[in-house]
Amino acid sequence: MTGKRHRGSLLKIVVLAIAIFAMIIISFIGSEIGSGIIGSKPISFLNVEAPKYHPAPERPFHHLPITNTMITAWISIVVLGGLFFIGTRNMKLVPTGLQNFLELIVEAAANFIEDPAGERHGRWFFSVCTTIFLFIVANAWLSLIPGFETIHINGEPFLRNANTDLNIPAALAVVSFCYVEYWGFKAKGVSYLKTFFHFGPLWQALKLMFTGNIKAGAGGLLNGLVAVFAGLLEILSHLIRMVSFTFRLFGNMTAGMILVMIMLFLVPWVLPIVFYGMEAFFGFVQAMIFGGLTLGFACAAVMEEE
């Protein structure tokens, strides 16, 4: 009896697999590229518009300087703000529903942040790192909602994944940079500048040379020059971080968007689901990287050097 049932479910799986495979093949043949290869006419409802990509965000309202990524960013803000606003109305000591979910997120983030940063600094970093993470995730996941990119106004897409607008990664990178430097000064005061302008060892060596101890001074001179050079490199690295932050997020998200568009064009049925799943994962990973790197740089900035 169990064998019969087993055979029955196996049969179902085989039928399902064949159906899925058939849908992929049919949709490929029916699409513009597939029909071109075979030499038949494309089937109208499988004929997806060829992907057009402009790096700059479109403006659905021609007379208004509002881009579609700006609208998406507002939607993300409304969704996130609304979730937290509703979830924290009359909070209960024993959490239920949305409050429980939000507490889960906040507590996970707090643990993630306070693990390397410690209790005191963790409280400083918490808001910025968590908000960067949530904003990127919200932008990425909202754009995966079916129908998201199909709304058109005045011939332009009304909504677009906000992370694919270079302005957003750039803005986040600048925020991250400013906060890291601010925390550095907050933790160490003016002596935080020593990270970048480290002339101490060089002065010491020069002083030794001028007071007669030429041999020891000459030895220290090299160390002093290395320290100055390392400080200059540090300035460069802090500035370059912003660029890498910006283009890592922008590149990953844009590539994902283009990949999904191309897959939809080539094989309109079934197969793009896989890429949607991948995009959901990559959106999370990119958000994690952005927030995590901000946290890492912040920890490095406030860390006491011995």
């Binding site: 803000i77 996130l80 937290f84 606003f85 979830g87 924290t88 906040v106 803005a171 986040l172 925020v175």
Partner: peptide
């Protein structure tokens, strides 16, 4: 936008 979101989430969340 981001700073508004930061403020919103910090104070309401």
């Amino acid at each position: 936008n981001f700073l508004i979101l930061l403020g919103l989430l910090t104070f309401f969340g």
